[in-house]
Design a binder for these strands. Structure first.
Length: 454
RNA sequence: GUGGGUAUAGCUCAGUUGGUUAGAGCAUCAGAUUGUGAUUCUGAGGGUCGUGGGUUCGAGCCCCAUUACUCACCCCA
């Protein structure tokens, strides 16, 4: 018989992992809801026409496509088949694909439902997405994103609130050493204006790697992409400027004196920082990083990225403002949106590495009822029901087996208390309750047991 | 898409210049213990060494192919 396996880059999540994952999901969800976001779910699959062209050529390559049902060759163009033009054949035999992120399906939803939606619309969405790239550390083909976006307002309060939410989620998860990097697309544009010639995107992609590969490697890459060293002097002067956020802003304000884009970026950023003060929060964990660029082509305003320090995993959260997302589906409907996303799978890996999962989050039942014989098992059912009425998660060992085995079961399931029932307990009504951590055992009435555990 | 690495028990891994019957820890099961787990002691089960071919008197080890996994690059959560 052939051994069953999983598709590359996908995982099962057993009870132990699910307990930890749900701890993350619950933390994020409760923060989203506290900030007034409402839930949304969209289908796992979208029409390919909805997805293609939104993520650039690279992104189109990484889309999982779904083969048409039935005789999918029926409608395929014979010429495409014989010439072996796979890209054209793909379009003939596949019209659906798995979602690549949550932002594009959200934009589609907004355009389709704009008459029912009250703007500004704040939605959160926690669902898996799929990417057909080669898996590696911290990178899967199926992974969950937790998105929160606001569409229909260009207020910078949204940007400030994103920072607040990130801080609150990380506090809830117990992650302390992290950095929220912030930048602005217009500041990047200002930077591009300072070096004449060369492709803007190539510049952003290259400088984004600055802290990873260093100045020399970045310059090397830029040279290979047609940038002249002489034109890069001022760019690197800015990128290498060290100082506080306020000092950085002052420095680039002089540099961007003649740049409309640069001035707009600085103004937005300054306002966001001021709003943080108005919210009575500090700039702790927030870092203005002029080299931060994000790949997705639709960001137009502030951009964010969150990294957990001392953990070798990519960013665990990112986002930004896009002025033109709905415009992709309807050119007459250009709504401004801003949003961000947590990568649960990377948060999980990072928290595992940092040993941040609290053990309480892994407890399922609080009590197990163990029994010595049929009569005590029967008696235990009544006790079990009383516990459950009190809202205590509890279970009884269903089979008649040795007490050893029942205690082992509790031990493995991390159940903290075991009520042992035998003929003595049935007779007296006093229950033997054992604390599995300390090993202590005492005789208590049902009411006393409930008070102890609750 | 490009380039490395790995593949031996359910899991994590040893395995000498190629040499008889392939080992350990953990896990599982049984017992020490007929009203007590995690700790301790004793014992047991479990492997066509990823797959296919080649070299050799002889291959877990060397060579070729293939598949899976994994790490890095591109890009990204």
């Amino acid at each position: 018989m052939e051994k069953p396996t999983l598709p590359k880059g996908t995982r099962d999540f057993g009870p132990a992992q699910m307990a930890k994952r749900q701890f993350i999901f619950n933390t994020i969800r409760s923060v989203f809801q506290k900030y007034g976001f409402q839930p949304l779910e969209t289908p796992a699959m979208e029409n390919l026409s909805t997805l293609t062209g939104k993520y650039g050529d690279e992104g189109d390559q990484l889309l999982f496509k779904i083969l048409n049902s039935g005789d999918f060759l029926k409608d395929a163009n014979q010429e495409n088949l014989t010439t072996g033009n796979w890209k054209l054949v793909t379009g003939d035999i596949s019209e659906k694909g798995l979602r690549y992120d949550l932002t594009v399906p959200f934009a589609r939803y907004v355009v389709m439902n704009r008459h029912e939606i009250t703007f500004p619309f704040k939605r959160y969405q926690i669902q898996p997405v799929w990417r057909a790239d080669r898996p590696q550390k911290g990178r899967y083909r199926e992974f969950y994103q937790c998105d929160a976006d606001v569409v229909g307002t260009d207020s910078l309060i949204c940007e400030a609130e994103i920072i607040l939410m990130i801080k609150e989620v990380f506090k809830g998860l117990g992650i302390q050493n992290y950095t929220i990097k912030i930048n602005h697309r217009a500041i990047l544009s200002g930077l591009a204006e300072l070096c004449k010639g060369g492709n803007e995107t190539s510049l952003f992609v290259a400088i984004d790697k600055l802290d990873k590969i260093g100045e020399e490697k970045v310059k090397e890459e830029l040279r290979s992409r047609g940038f002249a060293d002489a034109n890069l002097t001022e760019v690197f002067e800015i990128l290498n400027f060290k100082g506080t956020t306020a000092e950085k802003i002052e420095f680039i304000t002089q540099k961007f004196a003649n740049s409309e884009a640069g001035k707009k970026g600085i103004s937005d950023l300054t306002q966001v920082l001021q709003l943080l003060k108005d919210f009575n929060t500090t700039e702790e964990h927030v870092e203005f990083d002029i080299a931060l660029a994000r790949g997705l082509s639709y960001y137009t305003g502030c951009i964010f990225e969150v990294k957990i320090n001392n953990v070798a995993i990519g960013s665990v959260s990112g986002g930004g403002r896009y002025d033109n997302l709905t415009g992709v589906f309807d050119p007459n409907d250009k709504k401004s949106g801003v949003g961000f996303s947590f990568g649960v799978d990377r948060l999980y890996d990072a928290m595992e590495e940092l040993k941040l999962f609290p053990q309480e989050a892994q407890i399922s039942s609080k009590v197990l009822i163990a029994h010595f014989d049929a009569e005590s098992k029967k008696y235990g059912l009544g006790v079990l029901q009383q516990l459950r009425v009190q809202g205590i998660a509890s279970e009884i060992y269903p089979d008649a087996v040795k007490i050893q085995k029942q205690l082992e079961y509790a031990n493995k399931k991390l159940i903290p208390f075991v009520i042992v029932i035998g003929s003595e307990e049935v007779k007296s009504g006093m229950l033997a309750i054992k604390n599995m951590k300390t090993g202590e055992q005492q005789k208590l009435s049902v009411e006393e047991v409930i008070n102890l555990i609750k």
